[in-house]
């Protein structure tokens, strides 16, 4: 499928999903849908760096929270700003941090890069906790408007639509990368960086593109969060769940294709929600953890890998 029909198909699917949500008519369906779609965005964003170029980022929460807290700051400064603009700004901030982090840390390889990103998450959390304007350790309240602009109905429907739109953009980008020379360059870096250089791949530049895109999309995924939770404090904004899920979902679904994070997010996100409702709210991390371990051992190519036939 070419790029344009693919994007159209995504839009159609997104509209259909929204239509089904409207038909169900329960706000819980939208709250649940938002979480799953948010994880598709987050997982795909992680996969652009972690899956395609092989640099494992443990600092997901740093980028995600930068998006969320940029919305809190904008809400205090310009309360009337439309949400999509906030998403763009939050994404831009996180992308800048991604670029900077990339520049400082990409000379590190393998596990050393991962440790550096873990440190980044701690640094950003400390900064936010001590930044009074966005609520500091106390947290900040963001008042959710009662009604959704443009589409009518509850505001959570609007949040869901924004996240769906973002999801279409992120998936289209990820798939475009896979099929472009950028995707081949990323794969070469993942497989052997020195050989990639010798083949003419400008590895540093490509890695910076990956960290910037990945960080930016993570920030965008986090930007609507304050409106979703209405009260945001560092403990929830930097919750370990986001990092664990953003890594577990692509690994479970499969890191080699854009479809992997989608399958992982729907499966794990859905399962977690079922367990949260039926058993306990603490069970969801356990699910992601156990599934991740199982897949890494039994199916390292993820679910997508199970169905991919080896070329003859």
């Amino acid at each position: 499928m070419r790029a344009v029909p693919f994007v159209l198909a995504l839009v159609v699917v997104a509209c259909a999903i929204f239509g089904v949500g409207r038909a169900i008519g329960s706000s819980y369906a939208f709250f649940l849908g938002y979480v799953v779609v948010q994880y598709i965005v987050l997982g795909t964003a992680w996969n652009i760096l972690g899956g395609y170029t092989g640099y494992v980022n443990f600092g997901v929460t740093a980028f995600f929270a930068i998006g969320a807290y940029s919305t809190v700051a904008l809400y205090k400064l310009v309360p009337a700003m439309p949400l999509p603009v906030m998403v763009l700004i939050g994404g831009a901030m996180a992308a800048l941090v991604g670029l900077g982090t990339g520049y400082l840390t990409l000379r590190l390889r393998g596990v050393f890069f991962s440790i550096a990103t873990l440190a980044l998450a701690v640094v950003v959390q400390t900064l936010i906790t001590n930044w009074d304007f966005v609520g500091g350790a106390r947290g900040a309240y963001v008042l959710r408007p009662k009604l959704a602009p443009l589409i009518g109905g509850e505001y959570v429907q609007y949040l869901f639509v924004v996240m769906l739109g973002l999801c279409v953009i992120v998936l289209a980008t990820a798939r475009a990368i896979e099929r472009s020379s950028l995707g081949y360059g990323f794969a070469a870096i993942r497989d052997d960086e020195a050989a990639a250089e010798a083949a003419g791949v400008p590895t540093l530049r490509l890695k910076l593109i990956a960290t910037t895109l990945s960080g930016g999309f993570m920030g965008m995924a986090g930007a609507p969060l304050p409106y979703y939770v209405t009260y945001l404090d560092p403990t929830s904004g930097f919750n370990l769940n986001y990092a664990v899920n953003a890594i577990a979902m692509p690994l479970i679904g499969g890191t080699s294709s854009w479809l992997g994070p989608v399958i992982g997010a729907v499966l794990v996100g859905g399962l977690q929600e079922v367990l949260r409702v039926t058993i306990s709210s603490a069970a969801n991390v356990l699910v992601a953890g156990v599934l991740m371990v199982a897949f890494v051992i039994l199916a390292p190519q993820g679910i997508v890998g199970l169905f991919k036939r080896r070329p003859k």
Binding site: A187, A195, A196, A199
Partner: peptide
């Protein structure tokens, strides 16, 4: 030092692209 996750054709494709 081959690119292990790519096919041979794709291995040779990298220097052509880049």
């Amino acid at each position: 030092r081959p690119f292990g996750s790519l096919t041979l054709v794709e291995n040779v494709r990298i220097p052509i692209l880049y």
